[in-house]
Structure formats: C-alpha cells, structure tokens
Write a protein that binds this DNA or RNA. Structure first.
Lengths: 113, 113
DNA sequence: CTATCATTCGCACGATCGTTAAACTGTTTA
DNA sequence: TAAACAGTTTAACGATCGTGCGAATGATAG
C-alpha cells in the first residue's frame, strides 16, 4: 500500500534556497543564458567589457537585436551597464556570474562520458 | 571618423568554446534550468536521487507535468535516468552539473551587492 | 488481467525570437 | 544655442516555440 520509494533519502539538508523568490530569480538567470545568441554575448564579455557596436560587428547581428539581447541579460542581473561618451559598455555583473558562465560553457564542451 | 571603441580590448583569448555545437548544448542546459518548476526539481535532486512519484508528492504537481519536466532536463543532459522495478529514479548527471545548479541557486540567493 | 507507476500525444494558450521602423540620448560641428 | 549625426533603445508585428492540461498509451509487478 504505502508507496514511498526511498525512505532513507529524506535528510533535512536545507541546502540554500527553495523559496519562490530566489527560485524565480535563478530561473530568470538560467533562461537568460538559455539561448545561443545571448550566450555568445556572455562568452564575448567573458574576456572583458564591450560596447554595443563592438558586439554588433563581432557577432554580425543587427544593432537592435544585440541591444535587445543585452537588455534581457541585464534584466536578469547578469550584466553591468555603463555609458561612456557615445558608447555604452557592458560587462559581466560580478565574479559569481563569470564563474557561472564559464562553468556552463566548459561543461557543454566536455563529452561528459 | 573611425568608430572603433576600445582598440586595446582585442586579445585573442581563445577561452573555451565559441563554436556553434557547444554553444547550442550549453544554451540547451541553460534553458532547461530557466524555469522555476524545473529548477525546483533540480534543487530536490541536489540532495539525492528521487523517483517520479516522490517528486510528484514533494512538489504537489501532476505526474504528467513532473515527467515532462524531467524529460526536458534529461534531454539537456542534466539528469541521469535509471529504472528500478516499477519506479524510475532520476539524479543529477554528474558533479559538474551539481556545481552548476548549486552556483545558480546560490548566486540568486545573494543580494549581489 | 488488474493495479500501479510513468511516459507520450494532441490541443489551447501564452511567451519569446527576430525584423523593421521609429524614437530617444548624447556628441559634434557650426 | 541649434542642427546634424552616431549610437542605442523601444514599439509593433508575424512566426515560431514552450508550457501545461487531460486522455490515451507503455511498462512492470503480482
């Protein structure tokens, strides 16, 4: 009758965050990273800040599209934005994000057997 | 006239993977993590393997929905699937994924200054 | 065959992507 | 200062994709 599957697998490991708000934020970050176009921008920004026009020429995409993608990434709190004269420079928000992006890309590069 | 923005920002840092295939795979992983429902499952699996019915009762969602989400996560190579009698047990694919999920959740928990 | 656990299918709804064009912001020139 | 311009952002639209629900289908044990 009782259908519990693995009774010994129920420690109260209160890891970090199972509350809705943090989950929402984490999901937003994941979703932002979850598109090749945006991930390409993140990969480029891994090697330092870039302005929109730079990213435009490096990716071959239209300025509008690049800007839109940067907005999604910024709203997800992955990027930092700074205006400097005519240009707007974007860079990864912090080291935590750097690690996150690096891990995602490097894991995908593995053949993970 | 010439509108190059930051001429000194062009080192050939060939980090890891900017080729389309890896990018695609990384993006798929990101997208899979990019939804609260699926991220909840990943968080639960962070503390050990679970079968579908366990996850169903723990999340309060329908079996169908949980199974669908698990499929997305498995297709993204984030989960490992193992049948054991009537039950199907899911667990995080490897330590790399564990780190990835942990980082994503913990970064979202930070107030990121 | 029946009961249980899990996956898949078809459909409706909403979200997201990329294009085009218009609007906006700050810089330069006169 | 105003006008012209380069760089960036936003709005609107069609097309595509993803989500979640319920019903039908698979798989496994007794």
């Amino acid at each position: 009758m009782n259908a519990t599957c693995a009774p010994e697998d129920h420690p109260e490991h209160e890891h970090p965050p199972l509350d809705a708000e943090h989950l929402q934020r984490a999901a937003r970050m994941g979703a932002a990273m979850g598109e090749p176009g945006r991930l390409t921008l993140l990969a480029l920004l891994l090697q330092g800040r870039h302005c929109v026009s730079e990213l435009t020429t490096e990716t071959g995409e239209s300025t509008s599209l690049v800007s839109q993608r940067l907005k999604v990434l910024t709203d997800a709190e992955l990027l930092h934005r700074r205006r400097e004269g005519k240009h707007v420079y974007y860079s990864l928000a912090d080291d935590h994000v750097r690690i996150l992006v690096r891990n995602l890309l490097s894991h995908a590069a593995d053949d993970h057997q």
